[in-house]
């Protein structure tokens, strides 16, 4: 059977890498066109167009963190290194998307609320989740032994997701005011006319980019593994030859 994610050699590109890059390239112009043509909000003005990048980035980041925990759990169950590679890739791409989301958010906040940051429920919750997964990457970077690093990271990634509902409760308790706009569901009439399609396209584009970066990062993990194996082998042969 053709393997979609693992190419036959570590240098070759897997089918998934090609598919996701085609998706990204196809979606990008459609999204850009839709954003450009979207109507300008009568209340917020042009700054409202951040809707087509900021919430999609947030969805992508959450998707990354959920994938990290899921692949971590799969690794603990099956103990196959590929699940650990997926978990690491998902965490790294998730942290990237979360960073971009945390950068674009304050820009909208400055333009609309007049201040960069507020300790709103959703902002605080996301910031904490961000710190958890930054710590996750640090833990991976500083752990000795790839098998041990994988186990620790899997546990920590799961713990990071478990703490989300607790944090939510905690921040509500401390009176974090909900300033952040509520969830927008396409189909509700909260979104003005003509705003749904660029928003949905934005979400699809970010998900496609997430998948593309994820697959590429995963390929990098496999390639690194192959290099280390090759180098170890040639070193062993050197030792044997002398």
């Amino acid at each position: 059977m053709l393997n979609v994610f693992d190419a036959t050699s570590p240098i070759a590109r897997a089918p998934a890498a090609r598919l996701t890059s085609v998706l990204c390239i196809g979606l990008f112009p459609a999204w850009a066109f839709a954003v450009f043509n979207a109507p300008i909000d009568s209340f917020q003005g042009v700054i409202q167009k951040i809707l087509y990048i900021h919430p999609p980035l947030a969805f992508g980041a959450y998707l990354g963190f959920i994938c990290t925990a899921l692949f971590g759990a799969l690794y603990l169950w099956k103990r196959e290194p590929r699940f650990d590679h997926w978990a690491l890739s998902a965490a790294e791409v998730g942290v990237l998307l979360c960073t971009l989301m945390l950068l674009t958010g304050p820009i909208w906040g400055k333009g609309t609320w007049g201040r960069w940051w507020t300790w709103d429920l959703r902002l605080t919750l996301t910031l904490l989740l961000y710190f958890v997964y930054v710590s996750y990457l640090l833990l991976r970077a500083f752990s000795e032994g790839s098998e041990r690093a994988a186990r620790f990271a899997a546990l920590y990634g799961i713990l990071g997701l478990v703490v989300v509902p607790l944090n939510r409760f905690a921040i509500e308790l401390s009176g974090g005011r909900a300033l952040h706009p509520a969830n927008l569901n396409p189909g509700d009439d909260q979104l003005g006319a003509g705003m749904t399609s660029p928003f949905v396209l934005g979400v699809l584009l970010v998900f496609a980019c997430f998948a593309w970066l994820l697959v590429r990062r995963y390929e990098l993990c496999r390639l690194r593994e192959a290099v280390l194996l090759q180098e170890a082998e040639s070193e062993r042969e050197d030792a044997w030859a002398t």
Binding site: L96, I107, W108, K110, R216, L220, L223, R224
Partner: peptide, 29 residues
């Protein structure tokens, strides 16, 4: 200006990461 900087930041971030992945891949190859 705010809006353009937000979009520019996102694009730079995404492409920067992709570029970094490509370079790391080349080095490993």
């Amino acid at each position: 200006g705010y809006l353009i900087s937000a979009y520019a930041l996102s694009l730079i971030g995404g492409f920067g990461y992709a570029l970094w992945l490509t370079r790391a891949r080349q080095k490993l190859r």
